[in-house]
Amino acid sequence: MIKNIGSHFALLLTISLLLVGAFCLNKKLNSNTSNAIALHNVQENIDNVNNETETGLEILPAHEPVKVYTPELGKSFVAFKEALGFKESRGDYFTINDFGYLGKYQFGKETLKLIGIYNPVVFLNTPELQEKAFIANASRNKWVLRRDIKRFKGKTINGILITESGILAAAHLAGPGNVKKYLRSYGRHGFSDAFGTSIDYYLKKFSGYDTSNISPNKKAKVKLEKQTA
């Protein structure tokens, strides 16, 4: 009886050991299979990348830098106007300098009266009015200097090529009368403003812009519906 029990126990132990061994072997085989599949997928991805590179397809970086494009104004009238406004005030419509000149283009009060603007406070706080004032003043200056533009355009004075836009810019700085004296004296009669900026400087800096759309007008005035504070 005891012998039979021992035989059964030995048989059960043997069966248990075989089952444990089979389970471990199966787990190892599954692990090896998963690793093989993963390695296959990695290799397949590498092969795809290589194929795309070989066929000329470009792989973009994760963060492509953003390109910013700004309009190119060149030598247009808008470029002329904005360059002059930047030189006068850095484009600030609401500034007053130490000498009382106003706005983006730094107008004096007497010049404003010539073109029909009598309220400096409204002028300073109205960008649209300032832009209209610039056009009107340029038209008036072009009329005053019309003969001098025709006579001196394309000539060289003090090493500076004289252009219409340079003449109009200088007139904005110094007034058309001083520019007329400068041109007719071939540069001997100079002028500088309170900051030391000269006619020569403006003639050169603002040379070659297209100001052909400015019509000479002796009586150029700004027309705006309301100029009251």
Rank of each mutant, 00 (worst) to 15 (best):
A36Q: 08
N158I: 05
Q43N: 13
L13T: 03
H189D: 03
R188E: 11
S16W: 01
T55A: 03
L18T: 14
E72P: 00
Q227C: 11
G56C: 07
N50G: 11
P71N: 08
F195D: 14
K67P: 07
K142A: 12
K113A: 12
G196P: 07
I160A: 12
F94N: 05
L60W: 01
K221F: 02
L112A: 09
F107E: 00
G74D: 06
Y105T: 05
V144G: 01
Q43E: 11
E44R: 00
N97G: 03
S76C: 06
N178Q: 06
E110Q: 00
I160K: 09
Y201W: 07
P65F: 10
I46F: 05
L60M: 09
E131M: 03
K205Q: 14
N4S: 12
R90T: 15
V66P: 01
R188Q: 09
F86S: 08
F9K: 12
H63Y: 07
K153A: 15
Q227F: 15
I96M: 09
V49Y: 04
V122H: 11
N97C: 04
D193I: 00
K109S: 04
H63W: 03
L13C: 13
N48D: 14
N32I: 15
D200Q: 02
E52P: 00
G196R: 00
G177F: 08
Y202E: 14
F206V: 13
I162G: 12
R140Q: 09
Q227P: 08
K75Y: 09
E131F: 08
L29C: 05
R140T: 02
D47E: 08
K142F: 11
N51W: 08
F23R: 00
K28Y: 13
L18M: 08
N178D: 02
E88F: 10
N30T: 13
R188A: 15
F206S: 11
I117S: 01
G103P: 02
A169L: 02
T156Q: 04
N35M: 06
I167T: 11
F206Y: 11
R140F: 05
S215F: 14
V121Y: 05
N4Q: 13
K75S: 08
N50Q: 14
A229H: 01
C24H: 06
P61G: 12
K218F: 12
S212F: 06
S139I: 08
I59G: 10
Y186F: 13
N41E: 15
I59Y: 09
E110G: 04
S34T: 11
T53F: 11
G159Y: 00
Y105K: 01
L124R: 00
S139N: 02
